[in-house]
Structure formats: C-alpha cells, structure tokens
C-alpha cells in the first residue's frame, strides 16, 4: 500500500514543519505555495471528480473521499502545531514587555525612595481646560 508510505512520513513532516519557527521568509513563501496549490487542487477536484478516484486507486485507498479526509487530517495536525508555536512566540514578546514595564516601575520607585521623594505614584492632576488653551 503506497498510502502507508506516504501518510506516515507526511504526519511526521507536518508536525516538524508546524513546530519549527515561523519567522523565516522561506517558511512564509512555502505557506503561500501550499495555499495556491490547495486552491488549484480544490478547483480541479470539483471540475473533474474522477481524478480524485484515479489518485486514490493509485495509492491504494478505496474512495477519493477518503483521500480528502486524510489530507484534511494532515492540515489539522499542521495547523494545531503552527498555531501553538505562534502563540508561544507571542507569549515570549509579552514576557519581555512585562519585564521591561516591571523594571522601569521598580527603577522609578527606587529613585523615589533614595531621593526621599514622599509623593504617591499617581500622575499629577491636569486641568483639561488648561491643556486645551495651551494647544
């Protein structure tokens, strides 16, 4: 059965590709190519449904519909992986932002404590009318 030799490596490749970093230009280009191929494949499958059956027979699947099912399974595996990686990268940025904020806040408080500044952290109240006039 050819399909077994295709599906198992395909699953592994889908997982590895999905988990790899998304930020490369090559990766972006690859995804666009896949998108275009999917579009073309979809149109072909609608116009000439028999082609699916021919491919299915060739790789040893009973029905063309099953071929689509296997394809979908691969896409979902890839999507779950790539979304989770993207989420992780996003999280890393939030971490850096939060840390920068925490550090600058701490630096300000330390400065206040060392210079004996006794005021609160609240911003100075501004009279909106005065601001308007200045502009």
């Amino acid at each position: 059965m050819i399909i077994q030799w295709l599906l198992i490596p395909a699953i592994i490749v889908a997982v590895l590709l999905a988990l790899r970093s998304r930020n490369s230009l090559r990766g972006q280009a690859r995804r666009k190519i896949v998108a275009v191929l999917t579009l073309v494949g979809g149109v072909v499958a609608v116009v000439q449904p028999d082609i699916l059956q021919v491919i299915a027979d060739f790789v040893g699947i009973a029905r063309g519909a099953d071929l689509i099912l296997y394809g979908l399974a691969l896409v979902i595996i890839y999507l779950v992986g790539s979304v989770s990686v993207r989420f992780r990268e996003h999280e890393a940025k939030v971490v850096l932002l939060s840390r920068a904020l925490a550090m600058s806040d701490a630096a300000r408080r330390l400065h206040d404590q060392e210079t004996g500044f006794a005021g609160t952290a609240a911003p100075v109240a501004v009279d909106p009318a005065a601001v308007d006039r200045d502009i």
Binding site: V94, S98, R99, L101, A102, D105, A106
Partner: peptide, 10 residues
C-alpha cells in the same frame, strides 16, 4: 523587601 511587580503573570 525591594519589590519588582510584573503587570502580568509570567
């Protein structure tokens, strides 16, 4: 102690 506060849980 000297406190450093995260705005979000890290």
């Amino acid at each position: 102690a000297f406190r450093v506060s995260h705005p979000a849980n890290l």
